[in-house]
């Protein structure tokens, strides 16, 4: 699953730590999600979408590998 968290962060000009503080997770969690090493829960994805004022699909999208697995 690919994500555009880095892009959204750049738009808002905030660091990983600031985003982590805002949605009450650790900076490591944000880093792992950004690098696509960890898939967040629906709850966390919704919190991120709310913070960035967009929909979950705007941030998280299925990649080719996910489609092939289906």
């Amino acid at each position: 699953m690919k994500n555009l968290i880095k892009v959204e962060r750049a738009k808002k000009d905030i660091t990983q730590a600031q985003l982590a503080d805002a949605i009450k997770v650790s900076r490591q969690t944000i880093n792992a999600i950004e690098k696509a090493k960890f898939v967040p829960s629906t709850l966390l994805a919704l919190k991120m979408a709310e913070y960035f004022e967009c929909s979950v699909e705007d941030i998280f999208q299925l990649d080719e590998f996910d489609r092939l697995e289906q």
Binding site: A20, K24, V25, S26, Q28, T29, A32, I33, F38, P40
Partner: peptide, 11 residues
Amino acid sequence: KERVDDEFTQA
């Protein structure tokens, strides 16, 4: 628990 015990830590 960790200082920030989120789902990543729990996983």
